[in-house]
């Protein structure tokens, strides 16, 4: 190597100019990326702003105490009732029914697909499951209304009179044509692929090293799946559950079609009731004049929905942090 000249050569100066041009380009790209990210945040903030500002107007007319404690939700009737509890109970009940189907089924199918199925089975089953997740929810809604609920009614028919004799407060003599059980079950079916696919990804990313450690002690596939793979994938599985909860809480079409639209304060899945989402879609379809109290109920209900979803997400955040993968 020969010694470098002391004064900068022309080539070096050109080098500096290129750097500036590159920096400018990168700034532009950075700005575009920032805009894209910012637009998401801005949309969220805007939605929250509208929800809150309209709700503030709502709460100038309706007391917060009535909103949170009254069991009568009939804002469009005279006299109106503004208690959110019936909608919350409807939402929680359909969600609970859905999760009681989706959690075990999603988890079992994830365990099967990640630990038991051979690759050819997995290649067939996975796309089918994902297809299931892509069916429009309105189709699920009519499936619930026209297939599942009639089937439930048929099953209930022979036992209904007997059960309603023993516990008339819980069991009706016959099942209503709209009910939360049917809607919730179908909703659970709809959420199952989501939970299954995220849980399976989490379980398949558990290192082979860890699984072999279990097999090497003489553990069976099931023991390995339940005692090693599942705990190791806990944070991913919990994330899947929370996503499933959010989907169930926010699901609109199925419950609007099949759960009935009468707000009723009940946690009994055999009854029909309305959820927050079902109320919103029902009222939004009518033409309510802007600025009226009826119009503002939509936003107050929407705010509650967002808060419920947020609460589940916060719980999920702390759970996943608690079970963070450390392998």
């Amino acid at each position: 190597m020969t010694a470098q000249p002391l004064k900068p050569s022309g080539k070096d100066l050109q080098f500096t100019q290129k750097k500036k041009a590159r920096e400018l380009k990168e700034r532009v790209i950075e700005f575009i990326l920032f805009l894209a990210a910012f637009s998401c945040v801005a949309t969220t903030v805007a939605i929250m702003y509208i929800l809150i500002s309209e709700s503030v107007l709502f709460f100038q007319e309706v007391s917060l105490v009535e909103f949170l404690t009254s069991k009568d939700w009939s804002p469009l009737f005279d006299p109106p009732g503004y208690g959110i509890l019936p909608l919350v109970s409807g939402t929680l009940t359909t969600t609970a029914v859905a999760l009681s189907v989706a959690l075990p089924m999603g988890l079992i199918s994830a365990i099967y697909l990640s630990e038991f199925a051979n690759s050819s089975v997995r290649e067939v089953v996975k796309p089918i499951l994902e297809l299931l997740a892509g069916i429009p929810t309105v189709v699920y809604g009519y499936f619930a209304l026209l297939t599942v609920i009639p089937a439930l009614q048929w099953l209930y028919l022979p036992i209904g009179p007997f059960l309603s004799n023993i516990l008339p407060n819980i069991f009706p003599a016959e099942l209503a044509g709209f009910n939360m059980l049917g809607a919730g079950l179908v909703m659970g079916l709809m959420i199952t692929p989501l939970i299954s696919s995220i849980s399976e990804d989490a379980m398949r990313s558990v290192p082979i090293n860890l699984k072999e450690g279990s097999y090497a002690t003489g553990a069976t596939r099931l023991q390995t799946a339940l005692k090693v793979v599942l705990p190791a994938a806990a944070s991913g599985v919990i994330a899947a559950f929370i996503l499933g909860v959010s989907r169930a809480v926010g699901e609109t079409m199925i419950v609007a079609i099949a759960a009935g639209l009468q707000p009723t304060f009940t946690f009994n899945p055999l009854e029909s009731a309305a959820t927050i989402t079902a109320f919103i879609v029902q009222v939004s379809l009518g033409d309510l004049p802007h600025g009226t109290l009826e119009y503002q109920t939509i936003f107050a209900a929407g705010l509650v929905l967002v808060l419920v979803t947020l609460a589940f997400n916060v719980i999920g955040y702390f759970l996943t942090k608690r079970f963070r993968e450390t392998y």
Binding site: E212, A216, K227
Partner: peptide, 13 residues
């Protein structure tokens, strides 16, 4: 016949 692996692989327990 038990086994110890190349990298330590304790379980998340």
């Amino acid at each position: 016949v038990s086994m110890v692996f190349q990298r330590p692989n304790p379980f998340p327990k």
